[in-house]
Design a binder for these strands. Structure first.
Length: 948
DNA sequence: CTAACGACATA
DNA sequence: GTATGTCGTTAGC
């Protein structure tokens, strides 16, 4: 490596955005509800760079006020960028504070972009003999690369690549990095809204550049081009020059490179610590300390330094005969043994614990005796499989005191395992011992397969956290890290990455099983203590005890029950679909004049819009492809036969692959039924979700799709399916919550609500409403639930924007209290930071006070929708619990099988039919008393379609 | 092999 | 305009 001094210039926004989107699927929300994804992402990158490269000099560059010059040149410049997400806006001041505390210079110049600042500084530094590395993923910077200026690009999945002259030459197929400007000018850049030359994409730009060398030369020689391209480019010479200017990074920003100021210094650690603690960046802080400690100090305790840490007695032991006293007596565990920095996350290695396996017959007896004396115990099953129906028990861990626990391994032999579980049965079936667990539904299902029922009070930490913070994830590792500052042993550490060589839990040594399993039980127990209090603070203890916990057993039962599927019928349906798809395929190929993959939106877009040119100015997706969504294509359907064929093709393919062909593969061989998995903790509004397979989105709208429902059948000839639907439950809820008498009365009188709305809004007698009027009224009614806008409404109907606005205005005149209700919800959210359902289920809305109108608007729609959707979810959950209890108490053969948000499906034993119909209707309609009656429609049939 | 994306199924 | 889950294709590891 050269001894030349090295300067790193960081493109702040590029890394902030990148960090933000890296967490987009799973945003980092801290306990105060702040989305810290962007800050976290940026700091990770920055530390990473420092750790890897140990720069001598470093600065971070920000944009300020956008580029005045570029906007002057081209008013659309960067105009159609999406609004900056709230998490990024709040990130910037935090990041700047951290940088200040780290003594890292922040470079900003009003009216200039970071690109320009970085460009100017790198050129200055180059003159002073520095090697400069521009830390950014943005390709535009390639134009600045020289012998002493490099791009330092984060690459996906970790790591960095350095682009010098050779890399740029290869990537862009240019001789000189400066030609990157011409390249970008020609092909344009949709994210920066650089228009580029029409009809020129990446491929053509490279070709033209190879031939002409520059934009100017190309434009001077357009006579050599031919065909359409010639016309297009000749007509866009000015646009070409403008595009090149827009793509050029400025090198004359009034900033100066002072080497001394840019030297990388030791940070102000207390200050950084303070900010990180506020943000709850525990791991990052540890990482930070390590990054800056290793070069100056050897005193810092490192987690890898095990000899130092293991001053703690490690007491994973095995209980043979002679150690019985351990079970009853007190084990003194020293609390003062944590030698590590308070900011490093604790692990099983660094925390005093007493985890013991219980194998011998005598030990087991004594252990159980002690177990039965407890009033509250956390347990966790370890199995061979994530599918509880096929899973075999490998062991069960128990813990009732923090830091302590026992592990009972299970023999592989079926009868022996059953014999062991029989010994434990009195514990599980004891009504007076509280059972604590993380995702108890799983454990309950596993134990049910051994014929063991889990009775008594339950506390599920996953459910608890779902109520405390529904927008976060709820897996145990995350919870332990967030609330206990503790990193549990990862399952991957134990059994390896999934795929090829993954072990089964049974292949893991008993010591490791014990450590892992008991740790889980121990951690879960500690989480419970944490969450119990928080449930009280959020006023959701009742929701937890009366709804979610009882529902857990109901769902477990429904999932274990499964539903019968007519596979033969689906197979014949599949053959028919295959036929129809084939013939559509033939037609489409003929109409397109070539064969291509119709299922590829990319290829399809090229055929439709490049080859057939069905539209003058096709819409593009955010990734630059032609948009070929249903909404776009259906506009074109009446003009071109191929479009309808494509839509039909797509519809049938989806049907076949997702339902007709997939469902039979999901039939569980041991039961010959399909068992969906209801997720109780994913939907932020309180709804359930269903997967493997998803039985909540079985088609119903189209004739063809509806056929799939014929495949869901009763368990036998003695049974019949009953479908019970809440009619218009969400509208009834909004009517009741808003106390809008006009709407309440319409429901009380049993009117068709959409017709009734149409009659009032359009001022026509109810008998004279046109189909269209009713349909528009229906759209507005639904729109209200989602938080209407005139824009959205006109997209959904044939109405123009102004007609839509008028309709919405009249609607609010008809139902004035609805508007009040909406405003009240938004006001409540602004004041309290959350909205809630009839049962007090909360949804936190961090963006409700955002200065950004788009972001705030989204939060406002959530503020309206969440209480409605969530209250409906609350109500059907109550009904499910009541119905389940009655079915149990009455010893009915009838089983509840499915829940589809406002519908319940039952497998009814025919002799019980009349009783069940009354029971179900009564329980559903009276689950929760509103000022509006709830109405349930019943349908019966020999398949799910017929039952509707 | 995995992840992102576009498309599309439901309430 | 709300809330989800799954499929095939494609790009990148």
């Amino acid at each position: 490596m050269s001894d030349q001094k090295r300067l790193f210039l960081v493109d702040a926004y590029a890394l902030i955005f990148r960090g933000y989107y890296a967490f987009i699927k799973n945003p980092r929300i801290n306990s105060k509800g702040v989305d810290t994804s962007a800050i976290m992402g940026f700091m990770n990158s920055l530390l990473d760079v420092i750790k890897r490269e140990r720069p001598d000099h470093l600065a971070v560059c920000f944009d300020k006020g956008g580029s005045a010059d570029r906007v002057e040149m081209f008013e659309a410049y960067k105009a159609n960028r999406d609004e900056t997400p709230e998490a990024i806006k709040i990130a910037v001041p935090y990041i700047q504070d951290i940088l200040k505390a780290m003594h890292i210079p922040i470079m900003v110049k009003e009216g200039f972009e970071a690109d320009d600042v970085i460009g100017t500084l790198s050129k200055q530094a180059e003159k002073e003999g520095y090697k400069t590395f521009m830390v950014t993923p943005d390709k535009d910077f390639a134009q600045l690369v020289s012998e002493n200026i490099f791009m330092y690009r984060p690459v996906f999945g970790g790591g960095y690549e350095t682009w010098g002259i050779p890399e740029v030459q290869k990537k862009f197929e240019v001789k000189d990095p400066l030609q990157v400007i011409d390249f970008l000018g020609m092909m344009g850049d949709s994210s920066d809204n650089i228009p580029g030359l029409p009809g020129v994409g990446e491929k053509t730009a490279k070709k033209l550049l190879a031939e002409y060398g520059s934009m100017e030369n190309l434009l001077a020689n357009t006579h050599e081009l031919k065909g359409k391209m010639k016309e297009k480019i000749e007509g866009a010479k000015e646009l070409g020059l403008l595009s090149k200017k827009l793509a050029t990074i400025m090198l004359d920003v009034p900033v100066t490179f002072h080497a001394k100021d840019f030297e990388l210094d030791q940070p102000n650690l207390p200050k950084v610590t303070e900010i990180f603690q506020e943000l709850e960046f525990r791991q990052l802080l540890a990482n930070f300390e390590k990054t800056f400690a290793t070069e100056t100090s050897t005193e810092t305790t490192s987690t890898s330094n095990k000899t130092e840490i293991q001053t703690t007695p490690k007491e994973t032991a095995s209980a043979g005969a002679g150690q019985f006293s351990l079970f009853g007596g007190d084990i003194s565990t020293s609390k003062e043994t944590e030698t590590i920095s308070e900011f490093t996350r604790k692990t099983v290695e660094t925390t005093s614990h007493f985890y013991q396996s219980v194998s011998s017959g005598m030990a087991t007896k004594l252990f159980i005796k002690n177990l039965m004396n407890q009033t509250s115990v956390c347990f966790d099953t370890e199995t061979t499989d994530i599918n509880p129906i096929t899973a075999q028990l490998v062991g069960i861990a128990f813990s009732w005191e923090v830091g302590k626990g026992f592990y009972v391994p299970f023999p592989e032999h079926k009868d022996e395992a059953q014999a062991l579980i029989e010994q434990l049965r009195p514990f599980f079936e004891n009504e007076h011992i509280e059972k604590i667990g993380q995702n108890l539904k799983y454990d309950i299902k596993v134990l049910a397969k051994y014929n063991v029922e889990v009775k008594g009070k339950l506390f599920d930490t996953m459910l608890a956290h779902y109520l405390i913070n529904p927008d976060m994830r709820h897996n145990m590792d995350v919870l332990a890290e967030t609330y206990l500052n503790y990193t549990p042993i990862s399952i991957e550490e134990l059994i390896g990455k999934k795929g090829k060589n993954q072990l089964s839990m049974r292949e893991v040594s008993l010591e490791k099983q014990t450590e892992y399993a008991v740790e889980d039980a121990d951690v879960t127990l500690q989480l419970k203590e944490h969450f119990e209090k928080e449930l009280g603070d959020a006023n959701t203890k009742k929701l937890f005890d009366d709804i979610e916990i009882p529902l857990l057993r109901v769902l477990a039962a429904m999932e274990l029950e499964g539903i019968n599927l007519d596979e033969k019928f689906l197979n014949s349906l599949s053959a028919q679909l295959e036929n129809d798809i084939k013939s559509l395929e033939t037609k489409i190929y003929a109409e397109a004049g070539e064969e291509f993959n119709i299922a590829s939106p990319k290829q399809l877009g090229d055929i439709l819009f490049d080859k057939l040119k069905l539209v003058d100015k096709p819409k593009k997706t955010k990734t630059g492809q032609y948009a070929t969504g249903e909404d776009i294509l259906s506009y074109l359907a009446k003009d071109h036969d191929i479009i309808q064929h494509i839509l039909d093709f797509r519809g049938l393919s989806k049907l076949k692959s997702t339902y007709v062909d997939a469902l039979p593969t999901q039939v569980e061989p041991s039961t010959s039924r399909v068992h969906t998995d209801y997720m109780q903790t994913v939907a932020a509004t309180g709804r359930l979700s269903s997967n493997n397979p998803n039985l909540q989105n079985i088609p119903i709208r189209t004739e063809r799709g509806r056929q799939v429902r014929k495949a869901f059948i009763p368990r036998s000839k003695d049974y019949i399916l009953l479908a019970a639907d809440y009619s218009q439950i969400e509208l009834r809820i909004i009517a009741a919550l808003s106390k809008e008498e006009t709407m309440i009365n319409a429901f009380k009188n049993g009117e068709d609500i959409h017709a009734s709305t149409a009659s009032k809004v359009f001022n026509v007698p109810i008998g004279e409403i046109t189909r269209e009027q009713r349909s528009n009224a229906k759209t507005v009614n639904f729109g209200i639930i989602y938080g209407v806008s005139a824009f959205g409404l006109s997209n959904q109907t044939d109405l123009s924007r102004s007609e839509s606005k008028e309709l919405i205005d009249t609607y609010y005149l008809t139902y004035p209290k609805l508007r009040n209700f909406i405003n009240e919800q938004i006001d409540f959210a602004r004041e309290n930071g959350y909205v809630q359902t009839v049962l007090g289920r909360r949804r936190y809305l961090n963006d409700i006070n955002s200065r950004n109108a788009v972001v705030r608007g989204a939060a406002e729609r959530n503020a309206v929708n969440a209480p409605i959707q969530g209250s409906a979810a609350d109500i059907i959950k109550i009904a499910m619990i009541h119905i389940y209890e009655k079915l149990q108490a009455g010893n009915f053969k009838t089983k509840m099988l499915l829940q589809v948000h406002d519908e319940l499906v039952f497998d009814v034993y025919k002799p019980e039919l009349e009783t069940i119909k009354t029971l179900v209707k009564t329980e559903m309609e009276n689950a929760y008393a509103l000022e509006v009656p709830l109405d349930v429609e019943l349908g019966i049939g020999n398949d799910w379609l017929e039952a509707h």
